[in-house]
Design a protein around this nucleic acid. Structure first.
Lengths: 152, 152
DNA sequence: CCTTCTTTGACCATGTCTGACCTTTATTTA
DNA sequence: TAAATAAAGGTCAGACATGGTCAAAGAAGG
């Protein structure tokens, strides 16, 4: 049985399919009106079904002329973004930055959740072994591992 | 879906692009007339979209023959401003501040429109995951991402 | 039952636009 | 040329128009 959230999700995805550029702009209030529900229900659907992990970008604006725009990131686009992200790995990165990269690569479906854990463990283990230049080592490792996965 | 302010902003930016020296001089009253709105609407657009942080200089004069001149600053100047802007990212920033920073970096050509969207999504996603210290996390993420882009 | 997902509503934050009133500068007039 | 007047532009508060958040109640599934 479909829930309201499912219906709204389906509706939005249909709109995206029918669009030219895999993007829809909608009014939260109007959508809520269309489905006879409270506006915040729309937020619920967005936060549970149109996340970055699932390949969607959401942007919105309040006030007069406000809107919610949902864009589906295409496979090619994701690859491009992943490529860009990869280029952004500097010569040296902190543990925290490495963590951010891992999360982003995961979001872009470059690596799985298990791979994230494995890579994290590898980074920790390897950097613990050397006394200097851990950040550089971490960057090299991350780069090496990611490129292996990307071009497998 | 565009608001009046958006239309006026677009119009002015177009004028600047079509100019020789990245500068336009306009009459507040005439512009207001052109867009059928009150003159103060022009001020609204100027103060929200053509700020120094975003790379524009405004000068004006009242009285007979008065004018408003908008100038887009040079590339070198923009780089300097971007540097300054970066330094202004505090230890903790709100979502709204992050949004302003993104708009500013975008106007200063540090990041592309697509990068803005991606970064916004990443910030939202990451901050949604942790319950505390969101502002601090947001600041770190923004700093990290921007600096990687700036010095890539 | 217990947990997780869904739905709602009260309250919040932010963006836009207008109009009344103010200030500055140029031009005209006495 | 000082005063008056006209011709710009500036400020600000308030009305509106949206979207966002969060906690709690309700529903569905194990």
């Amino acid at each position: 049985m479909s829930t309201l959230a499912d219906l709204i999700e389906r509706y939005i995805k249909q709109q995206i399919r029918h669009s030219e550029d895999q993007t829809v702009a909608l009014s939260r209030a109007q959508l809520a009106e269309l489905f006879s529900c409270v506006p915040s229900q729309i937020n619920y659907v967005l936060t549970t079904r149109f996340t970055l992990e699932r390949g969607y970008l959401i942007e919105s604006r309040r006030g007069g002329g406000g809107y919610i725009r949902i864009a589906q990131i295409s496979k090619a686009e994701r690859d491009r973004l992943a490529e860009e992200l990869f280029m952004e790995i500097g010569a040296e990165i902190s543990e925290r930055e490495a963590e951010q990269f891992l999360a982003s690569f995961h979001d872009l479906d470059v690596i799985t959740g298990k791979q994230v854990k494995l890579i994290r463990a590898i980074l920790q283990r390897e950097t613990a072994m050397t006394a200097q230049n851990r950040d550089a080592l971490r960057a090299s490792l991350l780069r090496g591992i990611i490129i292996m996965i990307m071009y497998k």
